[in-house]
């Protein structure tokens, strides 16, 4: 199962090397990793998606805590949280199918950020499900290039699980 870890680290030289070295040496699989400055000066937040069962993740968390630069490790997989990812996708279009492509972009509330004779770049943000969905729909046009940030996430202070609520509403309407 995939777990999402939100990790706060001291922003010092070598901290990413230490983390990636730990993953490599102990054989943990990393699916995505996003790093950026956090709310405090000198502290970065790393959001990582890791493949593994509960015991693997527990061992990984303990190993991460042994690194002196690591301030906090939180497994947010089962905590209501906002998850977002940004994807830039370059697809091939022609005069016949451009409209259809733009239609899809509009439905997903994505943006076209560059347009040329036969290529467009689409910028899409959303939870990982949405990213996968639009990528699948755009495949038929011919994907030239993809760049993704990796997932970032913050815990919802409201503690409300919107995914869970959506299911409830669907069930109610049915």
């Amino acid at each position: 199962m995939k777990h999402t870890l939100s990790v706060l680290v001291q922003d010092e030289a070598g901290v990413l090397s230490r983390i990636s070295g730990l993953f490599a040496r102990r054989g943990f699989n990393i699916a995505s990793l996003a790093v950026g400055p956090a709310e405090q000066i000198g502290v970065s937040r790393i959001t990582m998606v890791v493949q593994g069962d509960n015991r693997t993740i527990e061992q990984l968390t303990k190993q991460l805590y042994k690194l002196v630069n690591i301030l906090n490790v939180q497994d947010v997989t089962n905590i209501p949280s906002v998850e977002r990812e940004l994807m830039l996708i370059k697809i091939q279009v022609n005069s016949q199918n451009r409209i259809e492509a733009l239609e899809i972009v509009k439905i997903f509330r994505a943006n076209v950020v560059d347009i040329a004779e036969d290529l467009i770049i689409v910028e899409v943000t959303g939870d990982p499900g949405k990213i996968v969905a639009i990528e699948q729909l755009l495949t038929k046009f011919g994907i030239i290039e993809i760049a993704r940030t990796g997932k970032i996430s913050l815990v919802r202070t409201s503690k409300i699980n919107t995914e869970y609520l959506k299911d409830k509403v669907v069930a109610y309407n049915a």
């Binding site: 030289a13 070598g14 090397s17 230490r18 070295g21 040496r25 042994k66 002196v68």
Partner: peptide, 14 residues
Amino acid sequence: IFGITLPIVKHSYV
């Protein structure tokens, strides 16, 4: 040497 010893130290500094 900082890079070489990363996996075998508790911590290191330059």
